[in-house]
Amino acid sequence: MKSNGKPKPRFTFEDPERVEQIFSQYPDKKSATLPLLHLAQSQEGYISNSVIDSIAELVDCHPAVVMDCVSFYTMFYTKPHGRNIIQICQTLSCSLNGADELVDHVTDKYKIKPGETTADDQFTLMKVECLGSCGTAPVVQMNKEYHESLTKQKFDELLAEFE
């Protein structure tokens, strides 16, 4: 429960100008929370405790308040994950168009189930809910980018780019 007394590694933003710019866009500090979290995650890969502390200090609130926010959103990761995140949409239109087979395909290919990461840390597989691209189902979000109307073959080509 108590901290073990070890000093925590301190997180600092690599691009303080961007931080300044973010703050300048909002009438209050707290509104900068989400953009700062996005920025920190793109730098660190996930939201560590030191990121939480650092952002809490910047936006002038308690770390627990930032954590309350972070834990609500699916795009913020509080633990490290693989270098590439394969997010397969599983909601109705994608499901009707073969999303489940894509999940099975990744599981067969890399021996990872949804939520797992390959041993070499190359891929993390996630099943996600509607990505808002139902007209081009099935859709997979590879890291930040959408890949639409995927077939097994197109999916393999995509995965190969990241192997």
Partner: peptide, 20 residues
Amino acid sequence: AGAYICGEETGLLESLEGKR
């Protein structure tokens, strides 16, 4: 940052204010 409910206008406002 990944929450359907933020499409609801008051959920959106909370989110914009840096909250859940």
